[in-house]
């Protein structure tokens, strides 16, 4: 098995409050890993360590190792802009920039030095197609992204991440603000995207984890309680707390 990302004995403190305890988790290449667990258990914190979004938080202290393709992303010579290009992130609430649909997508590639109009056009179309949004917006690329539906905005945010050709996509509850049909569209999209990308997805929806992921990791109070093939987690988890959580007995 090839691992795109791995964490080894990862501990994280916010000030003197410990939020993650000794997390060792492997993320296999071209698979979907779902992170589940009750509110406050550390899912988002863990996700954000994978592309160093936590660097932005004051008083954060991290120890342990995080590898991307075998190299430590916390090594002093890491180029953080480049890291976040390789490991992109989609947030809980769709957060399009207040500009046109086209500009939302072109923004990232421009930052990474692409200015040729034809090339940008291609990137915009390809990204929107891959995010299953092209047909819905191709005739209004210059309209403001703010006028799209929530589900469309979320797919736009996914397209925006795809535009910079990442290798890993982190998603933090990408469907929590969406209706069931938009949710299903995102889920379908995730299963298609994993052919090219490696995906780590936080979800509060156990059924969503069951439907879309290949592996499921269950967090509780900052600890990784169980991590296994999703089929196993949902039919025969080895830990009692995992079973109680996924069968809705607590949380």
């Amino acid at each position: 098995m090839q691992y795109k990302m791995q964490t080894k004995n990862l501990n994280l403190h916010y000030g003197n409050k410990q939020a993650l305890y000794n997390i060792s988790l492997d993320v296999p290449t071209n698979k979907v890993v779902a992170l589940i667990g009750p509110s406050g258990c550390g899912k988002s914190t863990f996700l954000k360590t994978l592309n160093r979004m936590n660097d932005l938080v004051e008083n954060v202290h991290i120890d342990g190792d995080i590898f991307l393709d075998g190299s430590d992303i916390y090594a002093p010579d890491t180029d953080i802009v480049h890291l976040r290009k390789r490991v992109g992130m989609v947030f809980q609430r769709p957060n399009p920039f207040p500009m046109s649909i086209y500009e939302n997508i072109a923004y990232g590639p421009r930052i990474h030095g692409i200015s040729n109009k034809k090339q940008l056009d291609e990137i915009v179309e390809k990204s929107l197609r891959n995010a299953a949004l092209w047909d819905e917006v191709k005739d209004r690329l210059n309209d403001s992204a703010m006028g799209m539906s929530g589900g469309q905005q979320q797919r736009l945010c996914i397209a925006r991440v795809l535009a910079v050709e990442p290798e890993v996509i982190l998603m933090d509850e990408p469907c929590s603000a969406l209706d069931p049909i938009s949710t299903m569209k995102i889920e379908e999209l995730v299963t298609v995207l994993k052919e090219k990308y490696t995906i780590v997805m936080v979800t509060h929806n156990m059924q969503q984890a069951a439907r879309v992921s290949d592996y499921t990791a269950f967090f509780l109070n900052g600890k990784l309680i169980e991590h296994d093939i999703t089929d196993v987690i949902f039919t025969n988890p080895s830990n009692k707390e995992t079973e109680d959580y996924i069968s809705g007995r607590f949380g």
């Binding site: 299953a132 047909d135 819905e136 049909i181 299903m184 569209k185 889920e187 379908e188 299963t191 439907r211």
Partner: peptide
């Protein structure tokens, strides 16, 4: 709006 197959 066109239909998109979900849950393939």
């Amino acid at each position: 709006m066109e239909q998109q197959i979900t849950r393939k």
